[in-house]
Simulated scan of single mutants.
Amino acid sequence: MRKNVLITGGTGFVGRHLTALLIAKGYSVSILTRNKKENTENVFYYIWDIEKQFIEDEAIQKADYIIHLAGENIAAKPWTKKRKEAILSSRALSAHLLYTSLQKSNSKIEAFVSASAVGIYGAINGRAICTEEMQPANDFLGLTCQKWEAAAQPFENLGIRTVKIRTGLVMGKGDGFLKKLLPVFKLRLGAALGSGTQYMPWVHIEDLCRIYLEAIKNPEMHGAYNAAITDNTTNQLFSVKLAKVCGYKIWLPNVPSFLIQFALGEMSKLLLKGRRVSNAKLQALGFQFDHKYLEATLKDCLSQ
Rank of each mutant, 00 (worst) to 15 (best):
G194V: 08
K164I: 00
K164D: 03
T131S: 12
D207I: 09
Q153D: 14
E132G: 02
R161E: 14
R210E: 14
K173H: 11
L178F: 14
V163F: 01
D139R: 06
F140K: 11
C145G: 01
Q198S: 03
P201I: 07
G126C: 03
K179E: 14
G172E: 12
P154Q: 03
P183C: 05
N138C: 03
G142H: 05
G174E: 00
E133D: 04
I205F: 01
T162D: 04
R127N: 15
E156L: 06
I205P: 06
W148I: 05
I211V: 15
I205Q: 12
G190R: 02
L182G: 04
I160P: 06
P154N: 05
L208T: 04
Q153T: 13
G172W: 07
E132K: 04
I165Q: 04
E156I: 03
L181M: 15
A152D: 10
T131R: 11
P136V: 09
G159C: 00
N125Y: 01
V184F: 08
K164E: 13
E206D: 15
V170A: 05
A128T: 05
C209T: 15
E133K: 01
A128V: 05
T144W: 09
Y121G: 03
I124W: 09
R127M: 04
T167G: 00
V203P: 01
P201H: 07
L193C: 13
V184C: 04
G172H: 11
A152W: 11
D207Y: 06
E206M: 12
N138S: 13
A152N: 08
L187P: 04
A192N: 13
P154A: 10
Q135F: 10
A152Y: 07
P154D: 02
W148G: 08
K179H: 10
D175M: 09
G168E: 02
Y212M: 04
K147E: 15
K186R: 15
H204Q: 00
V184S: 08
I129K: 09
G126E: 06
E206Q: 14
